[in-house]
Design a binder for these strands. Structure first.
Lengths: 340, 340
DNA sequence: GCTTGTTGCGGTAACGTTTGCGGTGATTGT
DNA sequence: ACAATCACCGCAAACGTTACCGCAACAAGC
């Protein structure tokens, strides 16, 4: 059983003894076509289950109704919720989504984007890789007139549409919360300084300390942003553990791993050291003690990014005005910081 | 700044004063073309950054080098790892991936698949929705000659390519493990009976009980497959809690929620009731007690499914022979079942 | 000299769709 | 009765690419 020929407009035209253009117009209710002809065409079309060939359409109109998602890692609660939000909005608006994970590789980011350009994607939703150092493939999108919305991991310096969380403010809120619980010597687990979000969160952290008249100790800032990184750098954390009474981690899983490490070393959380995370995955209520964090709405961010992209694509105007939507994270205090 | 015209083969032909067919052949090193012409064409092509138009190619060859992923929910650790595996293999093989989540809706499953057919996707990777009751849209794929590999949630009765976990055996292993720890009255948290996987797991559970000479008590089988479902059915679980000494949950998050519920009601895990889950997400080592489970290799399953699909697509032969790859889950005993 | 073969390239059609233009036959207006 | 209007439809080109066929030029073989 070989590939059965998908029925085309020409087939309909042939069996009805009319021209392809008439069929095309009849299908889209063009006023030039008589009611009778329309009826015949539409009936036959639906009875043979005619479906327009999207490739031909895309070729003709240079519009594919497809958008590309470029994301560092799919297996990440935050990112997967973002994708989910994107996909739901896209589906309801009649767009298809192409997905590429870069695995934090710049080279893969470049080639994936190029692939999608080759497929004549209508627009991009991008969260840039941690290791991307050259940004020409991203700036080129703008000069090529392809609409882009960056989310979460945006591209510094490049004017663009953005959907981000207020990382600075979120970190400030988190740190302030620790201070309000009586912490005075607060450490911070951070990520690669190349990422804007980690810089912002660090700034929020130091700002909150200064505002409270507390000293910023560089030894208290450790670069570790994952379960693995904590384990690899456990000695650093253990070294400062006796001195500190608070810990702000750049994300939840890092916070949780730190808590487990500290607990195993005899520290009581939150009595000895209060710990707060960032992101609010599904983990926070499952661990013991439950993890305080600042909530990041991934689904909403994805949905909003998709809506923004649709606006950009459908406005027709490119490159004129950029939008930025900032989501302010919300403090979710739980047991891991309850000291009062 | 309007859309800059993407450079085409015709453009190259025009500036070089040769025909489009020559350019096309020169680009793919056709023997008919002289070395000199090839050199000129290839040099110009790369200097103006020529990229073939995938839509035109797809239209011409009815092959898009794109595959479609249809999945119930993205925000699910297991599924996101599967997607990750798919995407990595696809990327390395030069395929693009289109993604659709059905949100467990049959209607959305149908229309997403139809959308992707309209885009002339080369093949499908599908995990069917929980609520799908009619399967014609899936059987049609076979008659349309479109290669499909089902993974995890396969389509019963429909002969097809499959990548699955041995749910029966996994459940049997899990239940046996509870028995080996001295449990005699073991309850089971299950999912919608329409899903093959839940039926298989239930069968594995009852089989293990019977093999050990233990009685199967229908009251001990509760339909609850998520955090929310447990909370909604908490009274049922609490009712049987005094009688049971073991619990096998259909997935990890259900197991964890059950543990928390039981703990709040004064039960000690694993002393009073030993609990085991299924799936091995990232949660198992984070909770206290750490959760015993049977490990499901999502990434490998995705990768294998993609490889199988590639074989099917590139063999050219459709519909002749179907493959099935079964992954046997591995017991991961942790604290939640340690009674001996 | 004529055939045969080779090398290198161009023309055309085709994939499926849309669209501007034009053309037919019939109806209307004067 | 003649032009103007109208309703309805077909032609052909175009989107970018490739496969098939063919053709010119030139070399070689007899």
């Amino acid at each position: 059983m070989n590939k059965p020929h998908q029925v085309t407009i020409k087939d309909i035209a042939r069996t009805l003894g009319i021209s392809a253009s008439t069929v095309s117009r009849a299908l889209k209710d063009h006023p030039d076509i008589s009611a009778e002809t329309k009826r015949q065409v539409q009936q036959l079309a639906s009875s043979v289950n005619y479906r327009p060939n999207t490739l031909a359409l895309g070729l003709r109109k240079s519009k594919t109704n497809t958008i590309g998602i470029v994301i560092p890692e799919i297996v990440h609660h935050f990112f997967s919720t973002v994708i989910s939000g994107i996909d739901d909005v896209a589906y309801n608006a009649g767009y298809n989504t192409m997905l590429c994970q870069t695995n934090e590789s710049e080279e893969r980011e470049r080639s994936s984007i190029q692939n999608m350009i080759d497929m004549r994607i209508d627009g991009f939703l991008i969260s840039v890789s941690k290791n991307t150092t050259q940004f020409d493939h991203l700036t080129n999108l703008a000069t090529d007139g392809i609409p882009v919305v960056f989310f979460d991991r945006v591209c510094e310096g490049l004017p663009s549409n953005r959907v981000i969380t207020d990382d600075f403010e979120g970190a400030r809120i988190a740190t302030r919360h620790l201070i309000s619980q009586g912490c005075k010597r607060i450490a911070h687990l951070t990520s690669a300084s190349s990422l804007i979000i980690s810089k912002q969160r660090r700034d929020g952290y130091t700002t909150a300390l200064r505002e409270a008249g507390l000293e910023v100790n560089p030894d208290y800032i450790i670069e570790a942003d994952s379960r693995e990184a904590i384990i690899a750098n456990s000695d650093k954390l253990i070294t400062i553990a006796p001195e500190i009474d608070g810990l702000f981690a750049i994300n939840d899983s890092t916070a949780i791993t730190a808590i487990q490490l500290l607990q195993r070393n005899g520290y009581n959380i939150p009595r000895d050291i209060a710990v707060i995370g960032f992101g609010d995955g599904p983990l926070t209520e499952i661990v013991s003690p439950t993890l305080s964090t600042v909530e990041q709405k991934g689904y909403e961010m994805g949905a909003e990014a998709m809506r923004m992209l649709i606006r950009q694509m459908e406005s027709g105007i490119i490159n004129t005005e950029y939008e930025t939507r900032v989501f302010t994270p919300i403090l979710q205090p739980r047991e891991s910081t309850r000291r009062l």
